[in-house]
Amino acid sequence: MIVNAREKWSGRVLLVVLMLVILLPFVSLFVTALHEPGTYPRGLEWPETPHWENFGLAFQSANMLALLESSLLIELGVVPIAVFIATLAGFALGHLKPIGSKLVFIVFLLGLTLPFEGIITPLYFQIRELGILNTRWAIILPLIGLFMPFAVIWMRAHFVTMPADLSEAARVDGATTWQLFWRIHVPLSIPALSSLAILMFLWTWNQFLLAIVLVDDPAKRTMAGALGAFQGRYGTDIPLLCAGSLLILTPTLIVFLVFQRQFVFALMQGSLKG
């Protein structure tokens, strides 16, 4: 396919415009966070005296260290377990294909249409009956279940594209199903696994609704969920609120920037196989 100069430059201009649209909210938050606490900044006006101390004040006021520890504990409870279960289920549905696998796949597809907002009320009563309300388990266990439809479909799509010759050769050599899964398919699935783990990390870190409904103590929520309590306390202090929001967003931006190549590689690998 030959691309002429006009199409090339129009594509570049479009990418630059999209980049500016994406960066504009972050620039606005950053500029607003540098204004004097208690003021109401207008637009993207750069302050005469930038108040860099707003970030330190927001860090101390929101007790960010405790929030960071809580978020990491929740991440460790959600991401490894969810990825492991989804990998097992995806391998079974995409490669082993037992009887009824198509029906199970349809059930998982229907699970993608289930919004968090639609189940939050019954989920609250179920978590209360289990006796784990106001604990981190009230966030960890529902997230594992709610992430399963997407995660299983993601891993199934990967295992479907794996060549059957690998499994046949391993079977001839006497490999069991577990050895086939753990020694052959999992090492070849690292790009898909890493990209799925990145997505789950970002979604868990930014989880807001479950955290504020199922956990009362802000110190046991995710950082995004704790922003609700921070907003209720400093809702009228726009610069401080923007500083706190940027501090909460920073870890997710760092994770994405560090692992973006692996994520893009997994997506490109899937498109090439498809």
Rank of each mutant, 00 (worst) to 15 (best):
I2R: 15
V3K: 14
A5Y: 14
R6V: 15
K8N: 12
W9I: 15
W9A: 14
S10V: 13
G11H: 09
G11K: 12
R12Y: 15
L15Y: 13
L15P: 11
L15E: 09
L24I: 06
F26D: 05
F26C: 08
S28V: 06
S28D: 10
S28R: 14
E36H: 09
P37L: 06
G38K: 06
G38F: 04
T39A: 09
L44H: 09
T49E: 13
H51T: 13
E53D: 15
G56P: 02
A58E: 02
Q60V: 12
S61F: 13
M64W: 10
L65D: 12
L68M: 09
E75Y: 14
L76A: 13
L76P: 00
L76E: 09
L76V: 08
V78A: 03
V79F: 02
P80T: 04
V83F: 01
L88K: 11
A89C: 12
L93S: 04
L93H: 03
K97C: 04
I99M: 09
I99F: 13
S101L: 05
K102C: 03
V104A: 14
I106P: 00
I106D: 03
I106Q: 08
V107R: 03
F108E: 02
L109T: 05
L110G: 15
Q126S: 12
R128W: 00
E129I: 05
L130Y: 02
G131I: 00
I132C: 06
L133K: 09
P149F: 01
W154T: 06
M155Y: 08
H158V: 01
F159V: 01
M162S: 06
A164V: 12
S167C: 04
R171Q: 11
V172F: 08
G174D: 01
L180T: 07
V186L: 08
P187Q: 08
L188E: 10
L188K: 12
S189N: 01
I190S: 14
P191H: 05
A192C: 06
S195R: 05
L196D: 04
A197P: 10
L199C: 04
L199V: 10
L202R: 10
W203R: 13
N206T: 04
N206S: 10
Q207H: 08
Q207F: 01
F208L: 09
V215F: 03
D217V: 03
D217F: 04
A219E: 13
M223G: 00
G225F: 08
A226V: 08
L227W: 12
F230C: 01
G232V: 06
T236W: 10
I238A: 02
L240R: 03
G244R: 06
L246W: 10
I248W: 05
P251M: 05
T252V: 11
F256C: 09
F259L: 13
Q260D: 02
Q260W: 11
Q262S: 12
F263L: 03
F265K: 09
M268Y: 06
G270A: 03
G270L: 00
S271G: 08
L272A: 14
